[in-house]
Amino acid sequence: MKSITRQKSLEQIERGLSDWARVFIVGCGTCTTATMTGGLEQVLEMKEQLEKMDKWVSGWTVIPVACDEMTAVSIEEHGRAIADAGCVLAMTCALGVHRLNQYLERPVVPALDTLFIGVEETPGCFREVCGQCGECVLGETAGICPVVTCHKGLVNGPCGGTNRGKCEVDKERDCAWSLIYARLKAQGRLQAMRNYQPPRNHHRMPRPRVTRLV
């Protein structure tokens, strides 16, 4: 499981940094390293890009897991260089941005857009298989989530836009309901597709979502 990110355009990044001349860059050794959006190599490339924008890079680091509490320690180690910078450019996912904001007084500017939580299906190919909606229907859909796999998130079967097993939005993309149908049929459980699914409760756990173990 990885937090999947994509780098913002350099124009967007430059706009985000427009208030500051000096920048400290933070990458992450976990997800953004795996997706090659915030690993060591990308952090060094970003340093070069920022210098082309006439920014002064006071320092950089790749935190092992930017979203966990050890980030506080990494920040402390680089306290001096961070203090020399006007802001921190985060090449982490949004969870890392959140964590950095907890420990830093300096503004944190994201260099990446966080897209989804995905699993690596084949090397380098990440897929969203769960949208963490709080109302799991996987038991009736042969383990394929229609909420995130169907473009429209339909829970009662395919729309009329499905064509030869593909989605109307993109001929290369599989229609979720064709996949669900094929697998249910193979399992001899087509009956599950006939079950009426009521409108989803979008507030099973209202936002902001928090759970406490004790």
Partner: peptide, 19 residues
Amino acid sequence: AIVTPEADPLEPQLIKFEK
């Protein structure tokens, strides 16, 4: 409602028709 008699595969559309 609508139904697509020429859909391929057809059976998922027929199941939805019944629903």
